[in-house]
Amino acid sequence: NKFNKEMRNAYWEILHLPNLNEEQKNAFIQSLYDDPSQSANLLAEAKKLNDAQA
């Protein structure tokens, strides 16, 4: 299933973003579980936030 793979990839990438705190990571990961079809968008948002907090 495409979403499972996308979701897993997004999950791991978000988990390893160095500039997000636990609360931010948890919020993105919760959103992933709530709507796996948004994995790519959530990952993009997480990366933007990560870069902004660098």
Rank of each mutant, 00 (worst) to 15 (best):
K25E: 01
A54Q: 14
I29K: 11
I14K: 00
L20Y: 00
E45R: 13
A27Q: 02
Q53R: 02
A46G: 08
P18H: 06
L20N: 00
A10I: 04
E6D: 14
P18F: 13
L20W: 00
I14Y: 00
S31Q: 09
N1D: 15
L20D: 00
N50T: 02
N4T: 04
D51M: 09
A27G: 08
S37E: 12
N19I: 08
E23P: 12
A10M: 02
K47P: 00
D34S: 10
Y33P: 05
A10L: 02
F3P: 14
L20S: 00
A40D: 03
E13Y: 12
A40S: 11
L32I: 05
Q38D: 10
E22L: 14
N9E: 15
Q38W: 10
K25A: 13
L49P: 01
E23Q: 14
A40L: 13
N21G: 13
N21L: 07
L42R: 07
N19P: 00
K48E: 12
N41F: 10
N26G: 08
L17H: 06
L43A: 12
L17T: 02
L17V: 01
S39Y: 10
N1L: 04
L32V: 06
N19F: 14
A27R: 10
E6I: 02
K5E: 15
D51S: 12
L15F: 10
N9Y: 15
A46D: 00
K5A: 05
L43M: 08
Q53I: 12
W12N: 11
L20T: 00
N19A: 12
P36R: 04
N26F: 07
Q53T: 11
Y33N: 02
A46T: 02
E22T: 11
L15N: 06
L15W: 05
L32P: 00
K47V: 05
Y11G: 03
I14T: 01
E6T: 02
N1R: 01
L17A: 07
I14R: 00
Q38I: 10
S31K: 14
N4F: 05
Y33K: 03
K5D: 12
A10D: 02
K25V: 08
N26I: 10
F3Q: 03
Y11I: 15
N4I: 05
A54W: 11
D35V: 05
I29T: 02
K2Y: 04
S31W: 09
A46P: 00
Y33G: 02
Q38T: 14
Q24K: 07
K48L: 14
K47Q: 07
W12L: 03
F28T: 03
S39H: 15
K48Q: 14
S31G: 07
Q38A: 11
P18V: 07
N50P: 01
N19R: 03
E23V: 12
Q30T: 09
K25R: 13
D34T: 12
E22W: 07
L32Q: 02
N41R: 05
P18M: 09
P36G: 14
L42Q: 06
N50K: 02
L17R: 02
A54P: 13
K2D: 15
K5L: 02
S31E: 05
D34G: 07
K5W: 06
K2W: 12
K5G: 05
Q53D: 07
A40Q: 14
A40F: 12
P18D: 13
P36E: 03
L20E: 00
N9W: 15
Q38K: 14
L32F: 02
N41D: 10
N1P: 02
A40K: 13
A54K: 01
A46L: 01
R8H: 10
P36T: 04
Y33F: 15
S37P: 06
L43V: 08
N41Y: 09
N1H: 14
N1I: 03
K2L: 10
F3L: 09
E22R: 15
M7F: 14
E6Q: 03
L15T: 10
D51A: 10
A46F: 01
A46Y: 01
E22S: 15
W12G: 03
Q38V: 10
E23D: 09
N1F: 02
D51G: 13
S37D: 06
K5Y: 05
W12M: 05
I29P: 00
E6M: 02
L49Q: 15
K25N: 01
E22V: 10
I14F: 05
A10H: 03
A52F: 09
P36I: 02
K47R: 05
N4W: 10
A40T: 12
R8S: 07
S37K: 03
L49K: 10
A27D: 13
Y33S: 03
D51Y: 12
D35G: 03
N9T: 15
R8V: 10
A52L: 12
F28E: 00
A27F: 11
L15K: 15
E23A: 07
K5M: 02
N41T: 10
N26P: 02
H16G: 12
R8Q: 13
F3T: 04
N21T: 09
I29N: 01
D51H: 04
S31T: 11
A40Y: 15
H16P: 01
F28S: 04
N19S: 06
Q38L: 11
P36N: 06
E23L: 08
P18T: 11
E22M: 15
A46W: 01
A54Y: 07
Q24N: 04
L42I: 14
H16T: 04
E13S: 12
A44N: 10
E45Y: 09
P36H: 04
K5N: 07
P18N: 12
Y11K: 07
Q30G: 08
R8M: 10
L43F: 03
Y33E: 05
